[in-house]
Design a protein around this nucleic acid. Sequence first.
DNA 1: AATTGACTCGTACGGCGTACGATTTGATGA
DNA 2: TCATCAAATCGTACGCCGTACGAGTCAATT
Lengths: 233, 233
Amino acid sequence: MAAKRSSTETRKPRRTVSSPQSAQQRNGEQPLSLQRIVATAVDLLDAEGVDGLTMRRLADRLGAGAMSLYWHVENKEKVFDLALDAALQHRAPPQAALALDWREDVVRQLEDWRVCMLRHPWSASLLPRRALGPNILGRLELLSATLSRAGVADADLNVAIWSLWNYVIGATVTRANFDRSDDDQAAAQKRVTGLNERYPTIERSRLLLDSDWDGTFRKGLDFLIGGLATEGK
Amino acid sequence: MAAKRSSTETRKPRRTVSSPQSAQQRNGEQPLSLQRIVATAVDLLDAEGVDGLTMRRLADRLGAGAMSLYWHVENKEKVFDLALDAALQHRAPPQAALALDWREDVVRQLEDWRVCMLRHPWSASLLPRRALGPNILGRLELLSATLSRAGVADADLNVAIWSLWNYVIGATVTRANFDRSDDDQAAAQKRVTGLNERYPTIERSRLLLDSDWDGTFRKGLDFLIGGLATEGK
DNA sequence: AATTGACTCGTACGGCGTACGATTTGATGA
DNA sequence: TCATCAAATCGTACGCCGTACGAGTCAATT
């Protein structure tokens, strides 16, 4: 009997290094592994969205039986957790060159964060229900260090970080949402114009139509950082 | 044959007023109605969370058969849409007394918004995938009008609104997430302290532990509004 | 040769959303 | 009074889901 269901601890497959072509080469398929599962899950999520990821489909893509996944992964929730954190991995070892101005650094970090999530739009809708994985924590650490090095007092650090976090998450969630089905935007604006006596200001400002998402993100972020900076006097 | 599946148009039950105790009083149950369905869905979501809402359970609570719901509602997605917007209904006709300072007004509006969503934590995880209902639009309109009246130029209005929206959504999503399972927070912090050479700043600032959510929300919001205000010079 | 432990997977179960069509009900007008 | 009809309800069934369970495979170890 295998040591299955070992409570919270995830099993690590410990394939011996000696035989490079050991098991399961009948289709030329590589053996299952957590890495391969997570990578394939990300692909599948990119292609089919949150609802498109099922254990059976994921297993199919891996050339495996559905139940085989459960040796490497506790349940479907865990797959989501791992995929989300994987999507937020830094492509390059981050900052390397810390820039001229700390503001510039912060903006760069957060823009990369945002781009990273928009590349995998499902991550925005997944994030509200997931835990913080090592990659997310890594980004928080990097941001904290940058602000701290810039002279933000420890007392103000948490407020600063959470404010920036809130802003980025909110912006990304919103953007990804509006992107997914552009009929949302159109439908909402139609509702607005249809009842323009109820929403006159929104209609006048064309809030839901003229969306320069990138520019708006950048400007709002500047406002927030400006507020943070003047706070320290 | 009934006029079912009439594309996008939702059917309105048109019970005649004449007989107050017409149909389906065998259990003393009121007849189904969109209102009753949505209200019960909100209750169910409050009690059981997003995964706890199924059409069968919802129908049970209403004393009806599962398929009866589909006369009033297109599909389960629509139930989510309606429940989300219902959760964001203003309790009282909003502002009434517009305050001394426009900043005070904005803060009040956004705090109410946040409280409203935290009262129904599922709304935070639902929001990323839903359309904007009339109540959400109403809140946006109110916010727009307040800023516009305060003298924000139309050109800057959209940036201001989206920035505030981003902030509120991000803060609420984050807060609701951390609330749901406090082991998230503990687990993440344990991972941090376990690997404190990797996350030294986070550990020092106790980012994940000393969370004065309300205070942080308020302070960060002040920063953002401060940034918005100085922008107009 | 026997044992063991890592790993794979077929079967089955309960629950889900909902298509479909039969049924009930109350109002209408002949 | 009774046939007709639209509004509304709901039982059955289908295909899909997550995953519990246990049997099967195979290399390494004894």
